[in-house]
Amino acid sequence: MLTAAKNQLRVCLLSMKYNMMREMVNKVTFLTNVCFMVLNNASILVQWIILFRLREDVGGYTFREILFLWGLTAASFGLSHILFARAFSLSDLIIRGKLDSYLVQPKNVLVSVLTSSTDISAIGDFLYGVALVCACRPGVGGFFLFLLFTVTGTAIFTAFALLLGSLSFWFVRMDILQGQMVMGAVSFATYPDGIFEGISRFLLYFIVPVGMAVWYPVHVIVSFHAGMFFAVLGYACALSVTAVAVFYRGLKRYASGNLMEARM
């Protein structure tokens, strides 16, 4: 069991290394991708700076809390796209019958699929998120919580994408819905939860998992709350288990394909 996990990890690390090597073939493109992602994220902060010159708080959030919100969203989104980028294009793999090469390998199919791609610009997102939170001086405890919630946020974003992507085993063109829902979740995550009420608030906590990925964690980092802390951990585990179960259930319906293709 331990040897199998060690061997699986060896393959995952090699896969990530080769993904990085592919992206770094052109050093200029690699560096500009990372740098422009940092600049792109930073430019959006300007609107928040202007807004906080006009008001003291927005939706119950101070400017520092907004920075935590942005930092955690960018770091979670970045890490999920560095480690498990394929989860976000899973629909395409299923619809086009591209899982064959993973299914003939003596390794865990899901882990092999998820780690088979890396989004290099996400390194910029991740670094930006960490830098932003460090700039808020959260203290040792706060920084530890930030790291922990980056992991749970990564798990929630990845599991959400995996769950939606896996529905492609049953429904065609889920790739469009998957893309819109995931990007919608990330967009909503950069706004304070106080501005949402009623049904939209319910949806953003329980259907699109923004509340558990970002909002609750930010509340816990600012002022520790045990109930919220365990709710986030529990939700991350439950969503991950559900997504994995749906993927394997759907895999039995996998129809493969005969398209000419290359592993790029």
Binding site: Y18, R22, D100, Q105, L259, M260, E261, A262
Partner: peptide
């Protein structure tokens, strides 16, 4: 999978940049 090998002429298993 440890005991069989597969070659799909229409599908490339190799990483093209490596």
């Amino acid at each position: 999978a440890y005991r069989i090998g597969t070659v799909f002429g229409q599908k490339e298993q190799l990483w093209t940049h490596l």
